[in-house]
Design a protein around this nucleic acid. Structure first.
Length: 200
DNA sequence: ATGACGATTTACT
DNA sequence: GTAAATCGTCATA
């Protein structure tokens, strides 16, 4: 159980998106409950030239400011009036790049996770989407801008787990991003039932 | 001040 | 397969 430290995050988004697969996301709740899950699906948002990124053309607003923080920062944003999404900031400081964590295979704290997800659900749907995993892990605005390399509520543990075959595809939900919508910037574990919907 | 939109999920025909 | 839910954020004025 080795926590990922700064150097792990100080790489480009594509590389981190690939390397995050198979690593464990760990959440310590306020009541002491420990949740964990293996990352099985990610997307890279590679920088200011990426039309699908919130930081396209260097856009910097109160919402996406965390993308400009040091690598290892959590970027948590609110969307569609009801959902949170969790990203890992990466690359060099002041160069906004991040990896969206899209799905987990939950491995610890399943009872607490089921409670956090309102309705009864089969295990493979508990964390199979960027907003589902945030609900399951109680990730919201409070965790925006935290440092994953040092925070005590949310971090990443490197594991030697064999992860199986890795596949790529276009990213999901970015159809309006022109040519950037088609680039293979989504990574996932082939055949893993916790991976979210297939790309359109 | 206003209006359009969203890196989604869920329910429903 | 389609559409509703639901509201913070941002661009425009």
């Amino acid at each position: 159980m080795t926590r990922a430290t700064r150097p792990f995050f100080r790489i480009d988004a594509k590389t981190l998106a690939r390397r995050l697969l198979g690593q464990r996301l760990v959440r310590l709740l306020d009541d002491g409950t420990r949740l964990a899950g293996v990352i099985v699906e990610t997307e890279a948002y590679v920088g200011v030239r990426d039309r699908a990124s919130h930081a396209f053309q260097g856009r910097r607003t109160p919402r996406n400011d965390a993308m400009y923080h040091q690598p290892g920062t959590a970027y948590v944003y609110f969307t569609y009036g009801m959902h949170w999404c969790f990203n890992v900031v990466c690359g060099e400081p002041d160069e906004p790049a991040a990896v969206l964590v899209r799905a987990l295979q939950p491995t610890e704290g399943l009872d607490a996770i089921r409670r956090l997800r309102r309705r009864p659900l089969p295990d493979h749907l508990l964390c199979s989407g960027p907003a589902r995993l945030c609900q399951a892990f109680a990730i919201d605005r409070r965790l925006n801008t935290i440092d994953l390399a040092s925070d005590h509520r949310l971090w990443i543990e490197r594991t030697p787990t064999p992860i199986g075959r890795v596949r790529t595809s276009p990213r999901i939900g970015v159809d309006r991003a022109g040519p950037w919508a088609k680039k293979p910037l989504r990574w996932y574990l082939q055949g893993n039932p916790h991976v979210s919907a297939r790309p359109r």
